[in-house]
Write a protein that binds this DNA or RNA. Structure first.
Lengths: 201, 201
DNA sequence: CTCCAACAACCTAACGGTTAGTGTTACGGT
DNA sequence: ACCGTAACACTAACCGTTAGGTTGTTGGAG
């Protein structure tokens, strides 16, 4: 979309530095615990200056959620790139199943245990999801298929990210996603009550 | 319930100190801006030690949301103390209308403008609401009337606090509450699909 | 009435995330 | 070859927050 703008070496070096910092940080966090590792430790181990760390990551917590931009994109694309005519909410439910499985069954399990153990990380995750919800809301509002009001779009987006958070904490995450999405589906239909679902035909 | 445990003077002095700190802090924040006022400033102006501030408030942001325990209680009571036989979701909607009006039309307007202007405060408010949602979820789960699963209760609680956040940002907050609560109502009914709504009769 | 345990509040000093301020290098386009 | 700029470094702080240890008032037991 907007990748590979002009060229090369600088951007490669920059990306390499960023990756090195993120990898080093995650390794140290898992080895010694999130709170026991300081930014100065990460910087020293990655052989960069402290200020360099903060030029790549806005905060210490962001080191843990390095790939969060992917999730944001995937959520929006689950809406925009779905098969033409495919229903909206089931598409989102499917994506959510994929996300939950990815976070839960993966080799990523220790990371999520670490996140759950740290209030700072949990709080950061919360506001991150809120950003994702806003992006998703924008994608929903741009949908030609079922144009609800802006408020309804934002509400649905929030409900969806809520579903993720709740499912991750539930005993049976897969079932929880389905349970919550039954509610989400009903909510979305109710939002379209005034505006007819099939107006054109 | 659990107020006025034994007695007197100590608790009164303590409460007075707490109030003095909160009042001083809010005044300074509004005068000079949240970021421009440090904890050390607040402590000096309130004539207490820095450590005393933190013995009354867990964080700087908590100085702004001093009365948040009230909101938490009111939410739970909107469920538990409603007229017998009264429907659940409308009771919550009514409470939400009251909350939104209180935050919006009040003399509290400058405070909320300050909150909206500060990322730190917005983030703090987010996790605060999450706590409120958990409290509300517990109240819902204890309801004899319509016992959905624990997941459904937590989901509804989240949707409700989402409604507050979204309504506060909407052009027409009152209408937004109603719009979102139409969705919430539908979600709650859908959650009761498996479990019959009137099982005993 | 006295004395003691508890607890609010104090002070000092630090820790750890974050940010200016200021250079220094190495690309990349001209 | 040359210059503007982006990436990184170093230092030194700022600010929220916490630990350590002290003082003084209070409420209640003896």
């Amino acid at each position: 979309m907007s990748e590979q703008p002009p060229s090369g070496r600088r951007e490669r070096k920059k990306a390499a530095t960023r990756q090195k910092i993120a990898d080093t940080a995650l390794r140290l966090f898992l080895e010694r615990g999130y709170d026991a590792v300081g930014i100065r430790d990460v910087a020293a181990e990655a052989d960069v200056a402290v200020t360099t760390v903060f030029s790549h990551f806005a905060a210490k917590e962001a080191l843990v959620f390095e790939r969060d931009a992917d999730v944001e994109r995937r959520l929006a694309r689950a809406v925009t790139d779905r098969a033409p005519g495919a229903p909206l909410v089931p598409a989102l439910r499917q994506e959510m199943h994929a996300l939950v499985r990815h976070c839960l069954a993966d080799e990523a399990a220790p990371v999520w245990r670490m996140i759950d153990a740290s209030p700072a990380l949990r709080e950061y995750e919360g506001s991150m999801r809120l950003r994702h919800a806003e992006t998703l809301a924008a994608a929903l509002a741009a949908e030609p298929g079922a144009p609800r009001g802006a408020t309804a779009c934002r509400a649905l987006a929030r409900f969806v990210v809520d579903a993720f958070a709740l499912a991750r904490e539930a005993d049976d995450p897969e079932t929880a996603v389905d349970d919550i999405f039954r509610m989400v589906e009903a909510a979305w239909e109710a939002a379209g009550a005034g505006v007819p679902v099939r107006p054109v035909t």
